[in-house]
Design a protein around this nucleic acid. Sequence first.
RNA 1: GUGUCCGUAGCCCAAUCUGGCAGAGGCGCCACGCUCAGAACGUGGAUGAUGGAGGUUCGAGUCCUCCCGGGCACACCA
Length: 897
Amino acid sequence: MRIIRAPAMNDPRPYEPASIETKWQQTWEAAKAYKVRDDLPREKCYYVLEMFPYPSGKLHMGHVRNYSIGDAVARYKRMRGLHVLHPMGWDSFGLPAEQAAIERGAHPAKWTYENIAYMRGQLKRMGFSYDWTREFACSDPGYAAREQDIFIDLVEKGLVYRKSSLVNWSTGLNCVLANEQVVDGKCWRTGMPVVQKELPQWYLRITSYADELLAQLDALKGSWPDAVLTQQRNWLGRSEGAEIDFAVDGHPEAKITVFTTRPDTVFGVTFMSIAPEHRLVDAIVPASHRAAVEAFRAEVRAVSAQERMGDTAEKKGVFTGAYAVNPVNGRKVPIYAANFVVADYGTGAVMAVPAHDTRDFAFARKYGIDIITVIQATDAKHPEWMKLQAGEDAYTEAGVLTASAQFDGRPSEDAKREITAWLESTGKGRKVVTWRLRDWCLSRQRYWGNPIPYAYTDKLGAVPLRKQDLPVTLPQDVVFDGKGNPIERHPTWAVTAKDGSPLTVRGQDGPEAARRETDTMDTFMESSWYFARYTCHDNTAADLGCAAPLDRKRVDHWLPVDLYIGGIEHAVMHLLYARFFQKALCDVGYSAKREPFKRLLCQGMVCMETLFREKPGEKKQYFYPDEVDVERDAKGRVITAVAKSDGQPVQIGRVEKMSKSKRNTVDPQALIEQYGADSARLFVLSNVPPELDVVWSEDGIRGSHRYLKRLWVLVTDNAERLRGVAPYSGKAAEVAGADQAVVRKVHAVIKRCTDALEKDFAFNTAVAQCMELTNELKPDALRPDVLKLGLSTLVRLIAPMSPHIAEELWELLGGTGGVTAAGWPAFDESEIAGDSVEYPVQANGKVRGKIVLSRSLAGKDLEAAVLASDVVKAATEGKTIKKLVIVPGKIINLVVG
RNA sequence: GUGUCCGUAGCCCAAUCUGGCAGAGGCGCCACGCUCAGAACGUGGAUGAUGGAGGUUCGAGUCCUCCCGGGCACACCA
């Protein structure tokens, strides 16, 4: 049994995070401390937003980090006197809810809203300063209804269309995926294979905004991470070139248009590659080659998208038996159906110039096709050029044209323009720009999403619903058995109007019986405008179908978001869709701000060491940390690790992103219970800058907790006697010794903290500064007013990171009105440096000693004082000074010989 | 392969933008204090060719060039 010593009379109150944190959370809630108004001057306002979570059940460490960063910024900005909009909500449509319904029988809505309730409680327990009055979930009827209104606006603007096309069909989800959701040919969510399937789908015309989406990336440089800008640029994939029309020999009605970025090489075309699915293939293939082409097409189709896209796939083709005629020189070239030609990029056909394209070169070699050089390198020693001379590889760089009729001798860049112009003038080609970006496929054959507000009739086809007939709400009585789309199988929903009567749409001769669209929208739709909705979440009239989705005045007051924080995994999908959507919202009249996020911060992952055993031919067996004993040497390096269960060795693996499957996770709830929210928040902000990965360790969080305890003891030990003392507010020079050092330190630390937060949100260095100041504050050595200055500064500096303890200590020190209202402490640059400077003295770059001189010394006086010093005399003994470098306030360097 | 970021103590990182004594902070380690002992706490301490080679400079972790190593992104896109 443990013997617990009774506390002595003057023992300070112990640090009990749970009670302090609950107390202040209740205080903030009761005071609606973080509710923000919409009618204050914008320059006094700040909008900080973290990517809202999918309500999967409970918070994970990634959330804790993301939201701790955002909250620290929000609290810091408030202390700087700004009115901060800091909202939170739920990205609550999506597949896991349906998965849960299938597995556990709970309705997706029930499961989702129970999760939201639990996670909201966790966020509140973390003490995040959200304006909870603006909270909403995307699956709330109000939000989904507003989204349908916007959808109809987009329809009227011509941004929505339906087309039948090959789509990515996830065999795991029985559902269509966007290109971005296909990773290495597999479903990004389930990892199951993705196959191509022909289906009619709804699309949003994001490609109409391609130019603007690209152009405005330049303006985001410096405010968004380069990695994100690059990824978006790659994704948009703008490519400038020419389309050239080739006639087909013996088929005067047929014409194959190719797209090329190298019109300067057109005289070197020796064959053409065409996508096997190209619509002209059947028309031009002679009977003699039909069987071979059909077989090839079947073979290509059988190969999964994954293999076809990967660079391991062999480049293959089959001669179609047809010939194309090169419009510039009349040369007849064979047409090959090739597996590497993508049907829906460019024109689905490529002119092949083996001399100047690596892939064409390999293909020509394989099938024995001619190689004609039409570009000459200007540098005869160019390695690629020498390879072409040796018949080893193509020369793909720019050069000078040859064997190109009237263009001989022209440089590539000029020839591109001139040849394109010539083709244009003869009607055989034209300058074009193509994009890698495709339109956004919106349809999902799923239940738990927002219904697409369309209906179909036999006569009219697809008809958008009128706004007064909205919203379309999901049927409640559906069956989840994992076999396809539950809405589609509902007996009456698709043909029943809001009021229960049979669904009709208005036709020319009166109402016509109609059937609803049963597809729901991609959930990236909801996350494309939620940041705008936070500014006016209450814009909801009694009749849901009639209120405007957004209040333009408030949207434009708050947007763009000043700081948006989230994971880099959203670099393309979410962030590109949201940028597009904001522009579309502008064009339907809901905003004038064309970019949604002014600054973007992508925080790193929370990682942890993995522990595993591996046997040949078996999957890795992972261990939880508490199942393993680790032994370290004197330097802290790991010597051995063994499992507690059997004493056998365990391997220590890489530090990897926390995941359940690797058993390297930590439950934030347990951290809160053991150490408190303040310690958890401080830990995820310490040690590394926000954009780097942070490695979780038990020792690490104990370190953060230990620091808060030290701060607690330091303040509570002295609070009583300091309560009535005013913090020292005079000059540093007016006090002496340790007091003066502390006053200077206070100014220096405030400056460094402020710089760290203003420049890069470098909370790690801000925390370090707080610790440094704490280490300097020795109560017994300081005047009470100087100590009070130090403590009251410290408490305010730590407040954005660990707000509960800061509030409590602020109150104990006699502060009123809360630590936020107290404001961020100010500093005076001139108070940081002392009157004297300790100059290091270097001789030929090596430090020989130090001399202390008055800061006010300058010019000849300073030089004289330096030369007179013992250190300089000793260093120059018997040598001559060739050069004397004196940097006032910094250093002295002697060049001697 | 191309682009980009990075490489500082046993580990995570400051200092790099704006050149000036290599170290703010944390973890780990060691010693001492406290303790019957440990934990906790406190006090103190050790640890480096700043990945390598050149260059610029009075002076380079910092700027320039090349190389090595690593991360991330892109990579049949015509």
